[in-house]
Simulated assay, not measured.
Amino acid sequence: MKVFSGIEEAKEYVGKEVGVSPWYDVTQERINAFADATGDHQWIHVDVERAKNESPFGGPVAHGYFTLSLAPKMMWEVYKMEGVKMGVNYGVNKVRFPAPVPAGSRIRMHLELKELQDIEGGAQAVMLLTFEREGQEKPVCVAESVSRWYV
């Protein structure tokens, strides 16, 4: 885990990878829980038998937004920002899901600090989040996440 002592130290990482999260198990139980939480019970996610028989993926896959929803958890595992009163999610510039995440996969996230600019009361960071699936070269999710850190 990278610990930044403040915004000025973080500026030294613009254009660089900050770190990589630990692996996370994407189980069918977690996919079902996400479906229950969001109301998205599309069969490609939750109907194991139908997904095995009819899906081009050969079985159930995680929701794209399930993968993206892991961003805050994984960001907390990659870095810590000291010297700020609070950090908030400000939005997402761009999100793509280039490859599926089959149930039973393991994924992790690479975090690059893409941009950092001063704003009133703190700084705004744009982070490139690249989620990978174990054993696969193509990423499963790529997103630009925007955070604000207030001092």
Rank of each mutant, 00 (worst) to 15 (best):
M1L: 04
G19K: 06
A71E: 01
H45T: 12
G87K: 04
I107M: 04
L113H: 02
H45A: 12
V20Y: 15
Y90W: 05
E132A: 08
A123E: 02
E82L: 11
H110G: 03
S105V: 00
R96K: 09
A71G: 02
L128S: 07
G6R: 10
R108P: 03
Y13P: 10
A71I: 14
Q28D: 06
C141I: 05
A125L: 07
S55W: 01
K73H: 15
V151H: 11
M127I: 07
S21D: 09
M75L: 13
K94V: 02
G122V: 01
Q28Y: 03
K138N: 11
Y65I: 14
A37F: 04
M81Q: 11
A33Q: 03
K52E: 14
Y65M: 15
V78H: 11
H110Q: 09
L70K: 04
I7Y: 08
A125K: 05
L70W: 07
V88C: 08
V18L: 09
T27W: 10
S105Y: 00
Q124G: 02
S69E: 05
P60Y: 00
P72D: 14
G6F: 09
A143G: 05
H63Y: 06
W149K: 10
M75W: 06
Y150Q: 07
T38K: 08
L116K: 00
K138R: 13
L116E: 00
